[in-house]
């Protein structure tokens, strides 16, 4: 069976596969999930490729299995932690492209395409760039879902061939940003401004985390900042959810927001209206 194809059946099959620790380069990378019929990662029907590894550790991360760069073991749900699967596998550009191309008919009809997410896809910049270039050659629409936290020259070079950037903006206050994500936000703003200067199509994504990102001051600063740029008129509001709780347990890593209540409908609406006040178009859930 096709190895990468198996990856989408990621719950069981990886457990039997052995990893070879080959060096990472532009022709291979480590991915941990391929999601088809992805509806919230850009326009139309999309395939989302999740690249492993992230420089940040956000408290609300809903893909904690994507943080570590290398493949890792994770017990299988419902087996009392006695069977494990390996999260992440090495895949070649050709293998990933073959999976992407399978759904071309759906992209064509719906105006969709492929989204590279993570983790932070820029952690595997060379691999990502090859994929973006090859998708462009095949006329497949590409989006990259990024934290924006990457060395600027690498980011500029890598994202050049991307059609759309889904750029996360979380917290405006530098100290809070450091506290909740593990890194400062200066580089993130710089990078965003570089992308704007490159005339990239950008959609801002904002995780709505009660008590952390939803403070008035944060929202107003963020909205004002966005409004400085003519190209940024749209924002995706991503409400916090508990869908990743099981994965935190299985990975045995601390889930700091375990007790946090997801935002109420009313809160989502309020925050939406706040952004709309700045004449931003708000999509809930992306």
């Amino acid at each position: 069976m096709d190895y990468v194809h198996n990856l989408i059946n990621w719950s069981d099959e990886l457990s039997t596969l052995k990893m070879n620790a080959k060096p990472l380069h532009s022709e291979t990378g480590i991915i941990f999930k391929i999601k088809k019929y992805a509806l919230h990662d850009g326009p139309g029907i999309r395939t989302t490729i999740f690249l492993k590894g992230c420089p940040m550790v956000c408290w609300w991360c809903h893909n904690p299995e994507g943080q570590q760069r290398s493949p890792q073991n994770m017990p299988i749900e419902g087996t009392n932690h006695c069977r494990e699967e390996i999260i992440g596998c090495q895949a070649s550009v050709e293998q990933v492209l073959a999976e992407i191309e399978k759904d071309v008919i759906f992209y064509d009809d719906s105006g969709g395409g492929v989204t590279f997410s993570g983790g932070e896809p820029l952690m595997q910049a060379a691999f990502l760039k090859t994929l973006l270039v090859k998708c462009r050659q095949r006329d497949i629409h590409t989006a990259v879902d990024t934290t924006g936290y990457a060395p600027t020259p690498i980011m500029i070079d890598t994202l050049q061939p991307a059609d759309l950037i889904l750029f996360d903006l979380k917290i405006m206050d530098a100290n809070d940003h450091q506290r909740y994500t593990g890194v400062t936000n200066t580089l993130i703003f710089e990078n965003l401004e570089h992308l704007i200067a490159m005339d990239k199509r950008i959609r801002i994504r904002f995780p709505l985390i009660p008590g952390i990102t939803d403070r008035d001051a944060n929202i107003h600063r963020l909205a004002k900042y966005i409004c400085r740029f003519d190209g940024l008129r749209e924002i995706d509001l991503l409400p916090y959810h508990h869908n990743a709780d099981a994965k935190y347990n299985r990975l045995n890593i601390p889930n700091r927001l375990k007790e946090l209540q997801p935002p109420s409908k009313a809160l989502v609406q309020t925050v939406k209206e706040r952004f709309e006040h700045y004449e931003l178009r708000v999509n809930i859930g992306g």
């Binding site: 019929y37 509806l39 139309g44 029907i45 008919i105 759906f106 064509d108 009809d109 719906s110 969709g112 999509n283 809930i284 859930g285």
Partner: peptide
């Protein structure tokens, strides 16, 4: 939830159209 909003409906419509195209 997949069909909660207009976007979900519209994407499902595309899914159907694609299946029918095949």
């Amino acid at each position: 939830q997949v069909l909660a909003d207009d976007t979900g409906i519209s994407k499902l419509a595309h899914l159907v159209r694609s299946y029918f195209k095949m």
